[in-house]
Design a protein around this nucleic acid. Structure first.
Length: 597
RNA sequence: GGUCCGGUAGCUCAGCUGGAUAGAGCAACAGCCUUCUAAGCUGUGGGUCCCAGGUUCGAAUCCUGGUCGGAUCACCA
């Protein structure tokens, strides 16, 4: 906040005058005054005692008196222990407010030609299963992060790397050939990704049965897993795919097509999108070239069996396999290839990977390897690492059928939103289209906010019951406040009541209004902080604070019935700016706000 | 075992570049709808900030050690 900075300079000057000694600004600690005390900003004087050579109270008193008499910004002050609470003059708040009001874009920085280009990778699904709750956290974080970085003046490319090849895809394909030939999404009425996921599960079921059979015949578990006929067939299918066998490739294309249609529907429902999608089938061979090149240059080494390794012991890590004995790629190799391809396509200044914290080690290694292979961006890559989503009963386990499906969950949230709205009579007199739109906005808002308000680094518990609660610190509470402001502004408009365009300094405003302006002014700093820390939760918690403060204000005053027309215009103007900031904050989270609900 | 991350109210979470009496929401209880949307507002109760040391005028916050929980250390992705 600008006010804090200028106050810092003013105080520095005051101290120099009072004690004849210059101070560095980091000794001048200014924070927001706690609610139970009078004042807006508080100076902590303890660090200044060495200079003042007085008691904390005396020091605070002297500085306070100086500020009150020599500056126009400070109207009053009070001293409690070593804390100097400053009451900022109303005129300062009104000036601040007018400048925020005049700048529609307040808090956001628009990218220019020279702005850094940030590529952000998120989602990154496998094409053998539908998206689940874990993907939801990933997608929401990635999308919100892209908007936060955009608002901080970066050029953004959102990207997705689809893991469309490998043994897991072959399992689904094989199961379909064996037990589902002829079944399509159209014929079964199932979403493509769910249909393919079902065949993956079916494969697993039969595979497990074969293993059990082999163990019963006396084989060890390890050998049974390796020698079950189904897994051998799947491996054979992978070999055929890699060899370019026409029939296999064709089936692969068909089934992946089904899955992409399904994913597209899910992404669209979730409200996320991508600028560029990469497929591992296009990049997995590229990494091999980079690694072989590195082998010639002596960056990596080859073992007797032909496998290629990187020695990372100098970095305090282990040795890492990059190419198998048969020359094929592993996960790490693919990521190297994908990185190369991306940097060939775009002049990327910074690469951000939104990937779960179970892959912290992988990205630590990737950063070192990219750097060694001569890619400048390697050192600076950001692994945006987030925690797992757990259920109240514990982790999601596909074996136990506790995986929460993304499509189901979103549908359920929207349904509950509709039912709850209906019970409250919110949907009376609305068209079917409006009902559908509001239910969708509120249901998804609840889900998104519930997930985004939590610090990304932490594991979180997803309680379906609580997420559907629309009271308290929730998305719908914020949306509700927004809708109510819209309603007030609508009514003002209908009855020809003027909304202010410039707050007059002659107004006698109260602490409630000052508190709101102070919060509005913080938005700029909050957006910056969210960008620095890569954290949507900073935005979420800020918007909640703002809305909570506004609700108290809303209940204290009957805005439309205010008789003083100037005050009424000012309060409407303030409401308008709160709505604008809420909307911007929610936009950064990727959450829509309804104009009525 | 090595490395990384976490432990704050009954529950879900803020606060963590050191600052005042540690905050919200949920749940419980008590009030507020002839007044702009009660999905709201007001109040009450609820704490060994995992433990122990250290640094400091001052520690939930920083450091060290311990403890509990999670992740990871694959010729899986």
């Amino acid at each position: 906040m600008n006010l804090e900075k200028s106050l810092q300079a003013i105080i520095a000057k005051a101290i120099e005058t009072l004690y004849g000694q210059a101070v560095s600004t980091d000794l001048i600690q200014i924070s927001k005054t706690k609610k139970e005390f009078e004042g807006h900003l508080t100076l902590v004087v303890f660090p200044l005692l060495k200079i003042s050579r007085q008691s904390p109270e005396q020091t605070a008193q002297s500085i306070g008196e100086y500020l009150q008499t020599h500056t126009s910004e400070v109207a009053r002050f009070n001293v409690i222990k070593g804390f100097l609470n400053l009451v900022i003059a109303p005129s300062v708040w009104l000036t601040e407010f007018n400048s925020i009001h005049a700048n529609e874009n307040f808090g956001f920085t628009t990218a220019t030609e020279q702005s850094p280009l940030v590529m952000i990778e998120y989602s990154s699904p496998n094409t053998n299963k539908p998206l689940h709750l874990g993907h939801i956290r990933n997608n929401l974080l990635g999308f919100s992060l892209s908007r936060i970085l955009q608002a901080n003046g970066n050029k953004i490319v959102k990207t997705n790397i689809v893991n469309d090849r490998g043994i897991h895809i072959c399992k689904s394909m094989l199961a379909w050939q064996k037990w589902g030939e002829g079944i399509t999404p159209q014929s079964s009425g199932k979403k493509g990704d769910h249909l393919v996921g079902d065949f993956y599960v079916l494969f697993d079921k039969h595979y497990k049965a074969e293993i059990a059979e082999l163990i019963a015949k006396g084989e060890t578990e390890d050998s049974a897993k390796k020698n079950a006929p189904l897994i051998l067939e799947a491996q054979e299918m992978l070999r055929k795919w890699e060899a370019g066998d026409a029939e296999t490739v064709s089936l692969w294309q068909t089934m992946n097509g089904w899955v992409y249609d399904g994913f597209d529907a899910t992404y669209k429902a979730m409200g996320v999108d991508f600028d560029k999608i990469y497929y591992e089938s296009d990049t997995y061979l590229l990494g091999k070239e980079v690694v072989l090149d590195g082998l010639q240059k002596g960056i990596v080494y080859q073992r007797e069996d032909g496998s290629v390794w990187a020695d990372l012991t100098a970095n305090g890590l282990d040795e890492k396999l990059l190419l198998r004995g048969d020359g094929t790629s592993v996960y790490m190799t693919q990521d190297i290839g994908t990185a190369k391809l991306r940097f060939d396509h775009y002049p990327i200044d910074k690469m951000v990977y939104v990937v779960g914290n179970e892959q912290n080690y992988h990205f630590q290694v990737l950063s070192i390897l990219l750097d060694r292979f001569g890619f400048e961006f390697g050192k600076g890559l950001v692994h945006f690492s987030y925690g797992m989503v757990e259920l109240p009963e514990g982790k999601m386990k596909s074996r136990e059928g506790t995986v929460v499906d993304a499509d189901d969950l979103m549908a359920e949230m929207i349904n509950t939103a509709r039912e709850t709205s209906n019970e409250l009579g919110k949907l009376d007199n609305l068209s079917a289209d409006e009902i559908a739109s509001i239910s969708r906005i509120v249901g998804l808002g609840a889900l998104k906010y519930f997930i985004l308000k939590v610090d990304p680094r932490k594991n979180m518990t997803f309680n379906p019951k609580e997420s559907i609660d629309f009271n308290g610190n929730t998305g719908p509470f914020i949306q509700y406040t927004y809708a109510r402001i819209c309603s007030v502004l609508r009514k003002a408009n209908e009855s020809g009541i003027a909304i202010g365009s410039q707050a007059s300094v002659a107004l006698g405003i109260s602490g409630k209004e000052e508190a709101l302006i102070q919060l509005l002014a913080e938005f700029e700093a909050v957006v910056k902080q969210a960008g620095n820390e890569y954290s949507p939760s900073v935005i979420a918690n800020y918007v909640y604070d703002l809305v909570k403060e506004y609700n108290q204000f809303y209940h204290d005053f009957s805005i439309l019935k205010e008789e003083d027309s100037e005050m009424r215009a000012f309060r409407l103007m303030l409401s308008q700016n709160v709505a604008r900031t809420v909307k911007k904050g929610m936009w950064l989270l990727g959450i829509d706000v309804p104009e009525r609900m």
